[in-house]
Amino acid sequence: MGHSGLDSKKLNRKILNVYWVVIGLAFIIKLINYNFTAVPLGEYLIYYVLIPSGFGLIFVLFSELSVKRMSKHIDLIIVLAGLFIALNFIYSRPDIIILRSALFLPILVSGAYFRRNIIIFSTAATIVSYSLLTLVQPVLRTGISIIDQFTMMAMLIIAAIAVIGIMERGLELAGHYRQSIVAQQELLVKNTLMEKLTKTDSLTGMYNQISFHQFMDELLAHHAQFHFSIQMAIFDIDNFKRVNDTYGHRAGDEVLKEISDLIKNEITADDFAARYGGEEFIVLFVGKPMEKTIGLVEEIRRKIESISYRVLEGESVTVSIGLQEYEAKSGKEVFFEKADSLLYDAKRNGKNQVMTG
């Protein structure tokens, strides 16, 4: 089991910060404890304060240096630093039984890395180190019974088992969380694709007829409040049935895609383009003077006429366009009918032209 999801640098920094706090608090507590001892001040400061605190500083400083200069086994070094800090506390005051609980420090620290092997290593190192300490420290050697020794080791093993259990539960929850996130992302993608399919035309990528009517309803509702200009242009490809009958529907599809791409590239971000059905396209121009929109629509018509289609053996196609400006309070149906009527006027009057109202 790894801990790739963790930010190792931040984790190491936090653990080292904890060590600094522990060393600082221990120094302060030792100074306060002088009031409760009969040891002479000089002896107390040297043997109970300065020397133990000095060793603690050395352990933490070595860890700090390792983090900066080494790239491997930093986690083991930091765990061992916690073990040495704990052993230092016990060795300096073996008469204080509660200090032996410091042995849980390296085991708890190892759990932060979410790796079973580090927890097992720290537990084994702690048990071995504590056993050796009881052999070299006279007070511990004579003051701890075999039963107490085994009890302490058993408590350390139990602590390790508890940390492993917590770690595995945490990894399990993290796995469920990741699966949930992936599932949500997949659902979001599917919903986005479904929404796109329901709103766009699969051939051209333009918005479809349903989206056009939804957008126009919202646009006219805003127009009632802010009174900006709106024009509707309906494009219809001239003689498109002949294109399909002569060159086939695949060729017709290529023509539709190329014209739709041209329209999308020529209009602005404020405008809205849709394939209304068959060979018809509709564009709603927003916030432009009628004269500017006429010029833009004429430019689109000329560019469509100038395209030479490979699928049509070099032939070109033309479009007829009806362009109508929206009149306040006329309503969507009247607006559409006027633009559609102008389109048919363009068809009847020879095609390949723009009729405006």
Rank of each mutant, 00 (worst) to 15 (best):
115 R>M: 11
124 A>Y: 04
11 L>R: 11
177 Y>K: 15
55 F>C: 09
131 S>D: 07
214 Q>N: 12
197 L>S: 11
242 R>E: 09
178 R>K: 13
329 K>V: 14
350 G>F: 06
306 S>E: 15
7 D>C: 01
277 G>Q: 02
301 R>L: 09
258 E>I: 10
185 Q>A: 07
155 M>P: 02
88 N>R: 01
37 T>F: 06
235 F>K: 01
23 I>E: 09
153 M>H: 07
111 G>Q: 08
268 T>P: 00
301 R>T: 10
138 P>M: 13
315 E>Y: 06
92 S>W: 08
181 I>Q: 14
69 R>H: 14
293 T>R: 00
128 V>F: 07
120 I>K: 04
56 G>L: 08
257 K>M: 11
226 F>K: 13
188 L>K: 13
71 S>M: 04
353 Q>G: 12
77 I>S: 08
337 E>M: 09
257 K>W: 00
69 R>P: 00
352 N>S: 14
88 N>F: 05
12 N>I: 12
36 F>L: 04
317 V>I: 11
290 M>W: 04
357 G>W: 03
134 T>I: 08
71 S>Y: 01
220 L>D: 12
298 E>T: 10
136 V>Y: 09
349 N>A: 12
58 I>E: 03
136 V>D: 04
283 V>F: 02
121 F>H: 02
131 S>G: 11
209 Q>G: 02
53 S>W: 08
60 V>Y: 05
238 D>G: 04
220 L>R: 13
340 D>P: 03
196 K>V: 11
330 S>Y: 07
200 T>H: 11
357 G>M: 01
11 L>T: 13
188 L>W: 07
355 M>C: 11
274 A>Q: 00
139 V>D: 10
285 F>M: 06
43 E>V: 15
121 F>M: 08
57 L>V: 05
5 G>F: 10
23 I>F: 12
238 D>V: 05
164 I>Y: 09
334 V>E: 08
320 S>Y: 05
130 Y>F: 15
123 T>H: 01
123 T>Y: 04
23 I>G: 03
196 K>P: 03
43 E>K: 11
222 H>A: 14
154 A>Y: 11
11 L>H: 01
33 N>E: 01
172 E>G: 12
110 S>R: 06
236 D>I: 02
273 A>K: 03
13 R>Y: 12
232 M>K: 02
204 T>S: 11
14 K>F: 12
141 R>G: 15
140 L>S: 00
172 E>Q: 03
354 V>R: 07
247 Y>A: 06
318 T>C: 11
164 I>C: 13
59 F>R: 06
345 D>R: 13
171 L>S: 04
130 Y>M: 14
211 S>I: 04
45 L>F: 09
256 L>G: 03
37 T>K: 01
192 T>N: 12
45 L>T: 02
41 L>K: 05
55 F>W: 05
290 M>H: 14
208 N>S: 06
19 Y>T: 09
166 I>V: 15
310 R>V: 15
128 V>G: 01
102 A>T: 15
64 E>A: 12
289 P>C: 09
349 N>D: 10
157 I>C: 15
271 D>I: 03
248 G>F: 01
